[in-house]
Amino acid sequence: MATQTKQVTDFGTDLHLDGGWQQYWLGFLRLVVGWWFFHSGFTKLLADGLSYTYGPVYLKGMTGTALGPIPVWMGENLAWAIEPGVPVFETLIGLGLMAGVLTRLACAGGVFFMTLFWVGNADFGHGLVNGDLMGLLLFLTLGILAAGRYYGLDAYIEKTEFVRTHPRLRYLLG
């Protein structure tokens, strides 16, 4: 049975997910978002191996965006890291989310990728809110809600003595 409790704080009320649909849905959402990135990265690995040459090309094409010269500079100077990095990190982000391991770190990586996709694709014909921004917000949401704690391995990892003695890890797990 789904239950939820509210805790009153000096800044309003915080919602706690104690079971049922909310936890299940967060776990399901994490699985689907993880598959999205895993599929994207793994198929790049299958097709191009560690030489995803479109990555630097895409960044070089990001002229006149809100990110200024940063992506173009990255495309021109970091191609050696971007070509293998895009498929590898997309795959790892996907695996991390699906298994619920290092979920917040994976979500931070997903936000980084989706920011570049959102700004770079710049398909704003129907407004700023498009599929790329929704993907970005999904990663933010999963990270903020620590979705790896629901049906994810982070729930167990966080209980280990190592994490208890290294609480910084809670902000990479969760």
């Binding site: 990110l67 931070a108 920011t115 700004v119 921004l133 290294h166 609480p167 910084r168 809670r170 902000y171």
Partner: peptide, 24 residues
């Protein structure tokens, strides 16, 4: 877009702050 990215940067900075701040 710049305002949104700036907002993301603020949230990321806060995340890093929490990460650095955390001690047993």
């Amino acid at each position: 877009v710049g305002l949104v990215v700036l907002g993301l940067v603020v949230l990321a900075a806060d995340g890093l702050y929490k990460l650095v701040r955390a001690t047993p």
